[in-house]
């Protein structure tokens, strides 16, 4: 991007022969202005009418295949405890209503925020005495889709929990941190340039309204962390580890940023 030359800088540069090794700008923690609440748009607003139609019709939305698997997992007894999700939580339609809209949430045991996926695994480990689901595994995505569906149409409601505050702020910083060989932050694209075209594709605002999503690119369903990993590898950064605290912090900030927006799970995205 070209920009106006700064006169003061020119004078300095003229005087100095700069060797490449001396070129040393500090990594920028940018102050890109966040999107005003009334200007926020779901990723579905940026996709084609066909993709929106696919999301709107449960009979043709392929993500519903995972939701149905999740429904089975909910009812199936498992683990040493021989207990199903339903044995404790009853009807998901009642007990899980609004739950996905409130994650990540603070976990008192670990004194850290946990994502919904992590919460499900904590439940499996402690209450069902079963092995946790592997990140991005079919059952992990299936149960997350099923639980997520129970919040469809509800507003994203991050918990008002003081203990989350430092993690939320860390997530905000990460969102603004320029990363990777291409030296771009999340905010560079998704706060400052949303609606613009990157290689012909519109840049959405990056609101986590529909996860897990069925991405046409993936030809399958995937988690928010998988999508974040895509972005990080896209700017040639080293992605955070699955279930790392950094990813949870970013998820926390994204939830706060999307507060009040409507849950669409399971969404379709290109």
């Amino acid at each position: 991007m070209e920009a106006a030359v700064r006169p003061a800088w020119i004078g300095l540069a003229l005087a100095v022969l700069v060797a490449a090794v001396a070129v040393q700008p500090s990594p920028a923690q940018e102050t890109v202005r966040p999107i005003a609440p009334q200007d926020r748009l779901s990723g579905s607003a940026f996709m084609s009418a066909e993709a929106r139609a696919l999301q709107a019709d449960d009979a043709s939305n392929p993500a519903m295949l995972w939701v149905k698997d999740g429904e089975d997992i909910w009812a199936r007894k498992t683990g040493v405890a021989e207990r199903s999700c339903a044995d404790c939580h009853g009807e998901a339609g009642a007990s899980m209503k609004g739950v996905a809209a409130r994650y990540p949430a603070f976990d008192p045991a670990s004194q850290k925020p946990v994502t919904l996926d992590q919460r499900i695994n904590i439940c499996r480990t402690i209450n069902q005495k079963a092995e946790p689901f592997a990140p991005e595994s079919q059952p992990a995505l299936a149960i997350a889709s099923y639980v997520g569906l129970q919040s469809r149409g509800m507003p994203i409601t991050p918990p008002d929990d003081k203990r989350l505050k430092p993690f939320l702020e860390a997530g905000r910083s990460l969102f603004g941190l320029r990363q990777g060989q291409l030296n771009l932050s999340c905010a560079n694209c998704h706060d400052a340039l949303w609606g613009g075209k990157l290689g012909g594709s519109p840049i959405p605002q990056a609101h986590p309204t529909g996860y897990p999503i069925y991405r046409l690119e993936w030809q399958g369903i995937g988690s928010l962390q998988r999508r974040l990993r895509n972005c990080m590898t896209g700017v040639r950064a080293e992605p955070f580890a699955p279930n790392s605290i950094e990813f949870t912090e970013i998820e926390l900030y994204l939830a706060e940023r999307a507060k009040g927006m409507t849950v669409e799970t399971p969404a379709i995205r290109p």
């Binding site: 070209e2 070129v23 700008p25 940018e30 990363q179 990777g180 771009l184 400052a192 950064a237």
Partner: peptide, 24 residues
């Protein structure tokens, strides 16, 4: 290194290896 002209530019520096975070 377009950041020499505008430090807020989104244009990557094509011939620079320092001052970058978490490069893969």
């Amino acid at each position: 290194d377009g950041s020499k002209i505008n430090q807020d530019t989104i244009m990557p520096s094509y011939y620079r290896t320092d001052g970058l975070e978490r490069v893969a």
